[in-house]
Design a protein around this nucleic acid. Structure first.
Length: 281
DNA sequence: ATGACATCCAAAGGATGA
């Protein structure tokens, strides 16, 4: 299975480009973020003509997440248990939920397409929301893996955190003063790893950004950030055979400001034995 | 000193983004 995640920054503005990429790169499962539309506005036809099923979750022109898959999509959830909502000046269980998570089972893998809150500024209510949202995600991950330690679980998407200084090449994002790089955000990311997940791309693609601001020649100067990740449980990480960050998708006509991140998975079940020649087919 | 770019809705400019 080839699994990809891509913050598309409006699926309606970039549907042809998105489907072209999925087909060209033989993507089996594509998790999208920032679709910026409601489900009834999603351009399903282009995906279906290319052989994909799609589930989408969107509540307004903001946020929005989706999963496209060549295999059937099962057990769809539009929020993880404990996910906080957000109102103007506070977050919490009483505030309205945003369309930042869609989970489903595809080909035996539990996939969450996630768009972590931006945070806006240190001290902003949105920043507190971001930290609480990540805390709830880690708690849910712990509970999930405690109940199913061997589950192939993938948390993928735009995490809006640059986990190390090397992941921040944007001079406007200042270590210690900006969101995405603050110690509490990095601690929240580390806590996801402590909950039983690993960045399955970095070992195979140690360097490179996944996002470049549209402004100030950030892409030509390669002043980007690595903020889009594929985090996997042990069972998922053990199946990884390859990974890529498709930097070229930042080029050309009306690109998203993010590029796709991809992993290849060999999910043969334990009783399959690749060393034995096929006899029955 | 500020904006720079891009999206949405809505029909101008504000909200959002990181």
């Amino acid at each position: 299975m080839r699994l990809a995640t891509w913050n598309v920054n409006s699926i309606r503005a970039r549907v042809a480009r998105t489907v072209d990429f999925a087909v060209r790169e033989h993507i089996d499962v594509l998790a999208m973020q920032e679709i910026k539309c409601k489900p009834e506005q999603f351009p399903y036809e282009a995906f279906e003509e290319a052989g994909y099923h799609v589930v989408a979750h969107g509540l307004s022109q903001w946020n929005g997440v989706a999963i496209a898959s060549r295999e059937p999509i099962e057990d769809v959830e539009t929020a993880f248990p404990g996910m906080p909502g957000f109102a103007k000046d506070h977050d919490g269980p009483d505030a309205p939920l945003e369309a930042r998570a869609i989970g489903a089972t595809v080909g035996g893998v539990k996939v969450w397409s996630l768009y972590v809150p931006n945070g806006r500024a240190l001290g902003d209510p949105h920043y507190t929301y971001k930290l609480h949202w990540l805390e709830a995600l880690a708690a849910h991950t712990r509970a999930t893996l405690a109940a199913s330690p061997d589950l192939p679980l993938a948390l993928v998407g735009d995490f809006n955190i640059a986990p190390t200084p090397a992941d921040n090449g944007d001079p406007a994002v200042v270590e210690g003063f900006s969101t995405h790089v603050s110690p509490p955000e990095r601690a929240a990311f580390a806590d996801l790893e402590a909950a039983g997940l690993a960045d399955v791309v970095r070992p195979l693609v140690p360097a490179g950004f996944t996002y470049w601001d549209y402004k100030r020649l950030r892409f030509p100067r390669n002043e980007g950030m690595r903020i889009d990740f594929i985090l996997g449980s042990r069972a998922l990480a053990d199946a990884v055979t390859g990974a890529a960050i498709h930097r070229d998708e930042r080029k050309g006509e009306i690109p998203s400001d993010h590029v796709p991140v991809v992993v290849d998975l060999d999910l043969a079940s334990p009783d399959d034995d690749d060393d034995v020649p096929m006899i029955f087919g």
